[in-house]
């Protein structure tokens, strides 16, 4: 199980990377930690002519606060977040998500940017960052642009990068004062791809909430205005008001025909809501 041959370049700066992308004549893949692309290369499901290794670029390996916003370079790893090597403006939400991704040896090289660009629906960041209202910073030769994560992830393994563009950073807004966070994923065994993800960011004080149903077949289902899940109103009693039938209806509307899958997704979302309300004790991170 060895990859098809490819050339390899490891540019030392963003301009050099963009030049490399521009120059390339054949098919090109960017690689960061390689924890998702690596298996596909080894299985020869992906056979690029050139692999551009982006982990030597300093800008990608930084984290900083801009006002209340956390800006994580694309090559910050899950372990960096898990270990607290980057600032936290989410009340521990990022850290908890990071620590439950796959396994430690994978987290030591797997990156947040790589995970988002790979956009596997079953992966954690796609859903978690959507729920947290994060956005991505994209650079191309003609400049930079920013997209909300929900606009960036367009489908299963599909993102809104144009030819010649790269994801450089993820911008995560501060968790609002008093906002409740719940994130639950359902796996058949630890470290496995999720079969269902529920993520909620609820602001009982302002009556707002975001809810994400993830690990579906395509891009996660986002309810930017989650009050229909709570009988039309979000308040301090939001957990009691959670309406599974509304969530089920949302999934039907999104085209999920399989009743069993819907039941599992609704259950997981309900548990994320309960967790946000503090109804379930904080358990151990369920990942290796």
């Amino acid at each position: 199980m060895k990859p098809a041959p490819f050339a390899w370049e490891r540019p030392a700066s963003l301009p050099a990377l963009l030049d490399g992308l521009d120059r390339a004549t054949g098919s090109v893949k960017l690689i960061a930690g390689g924890q998702s692309l690596g298996p596909m290369l080894n299985l020869r499901l992906v056979e690029p002519d050139l692999v551009l290794d982006i982990t030597g670029i300093p800008e990608f390996r930084q984290a900083r606060m801009e006002g209340g916003t956390l800006v994580l370079g694309a090559c910050v790893t899950h372990a960096d977040i898990e270990d607290g090597r980057v600032p936290d403006n989410t009340g521990g939400a990022l850290r908890r998500v990071a620590s439950a991704i796959a396994y430690r040896p994978v987290r030591n090289r797997g990156t947040i940017g790589g995970s988002l660009v790979h956009a596997d629906p079953a992966a954690d960041w796609v859903s978690a960052l959507t729920a947290l209202g994060a956005s991505v910073e994209i650079a191309g030769r003609s400049g930079r642009r920013t997209l909300p994560v929900e606009a960036f992830v367009t489908g299963a393994l599909d993102v809104a990068l144009r030819p010649g563009e790269v994801l450089v950073a993820i911008r995560i807004p501060a968790r609002p004062e008093g906002a409740a966070w719940g994130y639950v994923k359902h796996c058949a065994k630890i470290g496995e791809f999720a079969h269902a993800i529920g993520a909620v960011l609820i602001e009982p004080d302002s009556g707002r909430g975001r809810a994400v149903i993830g690990a579906v077949e395509g891009a996660p289902l986002l309810l930017t205005e989650a009050s229909p899940l709570f009988g039309g109103r979000i308040g301090a009693d939001f957990a009691a008001r959670f309406d599974p039938a509304a969530a089920d209806a949302a999934l039907i509307a999104a085209g999920m025909a399989d009743r069993v899958a819907r039941h599992v997704h609704v259950t997981v979302l309900a548990r994320a809501v309960a967790q946000a309300a503090g109804h379930t004790p904080t358990t151990l991170p369920e990942a290796a």
Binding site: W8, E9, R10, P11, D53, G56, C75, T77, R85, T111
Partner: peptide, 27 residues
């Protein structure tokens, strides 16, 4: 605690270039 190390994938050195430009043996 593991807080000491630099950000990014372990084993990947900043700025360290590595190139195998010529496509390997004609595929």
């Amino acid at each position: 605690t593991g807080t000491e190390r630099a950000l990014g994938p372990v084993g990947a050195r900043l700025g360290e270039a590595a190139v195998a430009v010529s496509p390997p043996a004609p595929a």
